[in-house]
Design a protein around this nucleic acid. Structure first.
Lengths: 104, 104
DNA sequence: CAATAGTATGACTATATACTCATATAGTGC
DNA sequence: GCACTATATGAGTATATAGTCATACTATTG
């Protein structure tokens, strides 16, 4: 309703993508460098880098340089909470749709 | 990490758009018909209808027919919680960026 | 300073998204 | 059945997004 609505949408958009959700899940236990992230999520290095930069720009990730390696980490606990809430809805929805199918 | 990742992203995507966030905010206090929603958020009827259908399809809204009117409502409390969490991050980020500016 | 390892980015393609205008569909009351 | 109101949808446009390949940049090491 206010002027921060677009910004709020950007934060949610930063999470609303499967590759990025996989990255977030991998960062759950603390910071990781790009060289660890892209093999873990089985994506190309360049694609992974783009997603990391997008999340960095939106403000939900932090970045730390250590020599040639770049470490990314989750900047807000709220990010994990949002992912968890989305997961809860998915679980409910799957159960609901299974019941619909069984009713046929 | 698992197979529900795409679905989780779809739930988040359903929220990650300014017009849809405005709709969610307007539905905060209970179900409303399309005829109330689109003037409240100052969007075209057709555009509003599309966004409502998208959110319905993703599973975060419920729909009830009453005569010629269609009432939409938020199906999961989690939806409002996600919007609230995003808002919290935005507030933190705005403060952080203001401090950066002031430091110049 | 050359070679190497890690990360980012330019250029491109394919697809998805938001929006608009016009029109279709579905109930309601006369 | 006709007119009216409420909602949905087809068709089109403009823009955004995700991904790939090749290459550029940057810090480290020999």
């Amino acid at each position: 309703m206010n002027d921060t609505t677009t910004y709020k949408a950007d934060i949610l958009k930063a999470l609303a993508q499967p590759t990025r959700l996989k990255i977030i899940d991998f960062l759950r236990n603390g910071e990781k460098c790009v060289c660890e992230i892209f093999p873990a999520i089985a994506e190309e290095q360049s694609n992974t880098s783009r997603h990391l930069n997008l999340m960095l720009a939106s403000g939900i990730l932090a970045r730390r340089k250590e020599g040639v390696k770049i470490f990314y980490s989750i900047k807000y606990q709220e990010v994990l909470e949002m992912a968890e809430l989305a997961g809860r809805i998915v679980r409910h929805e799957i159960i609901g749709r299974q019941l619909l199918l069984e009713a046929v």
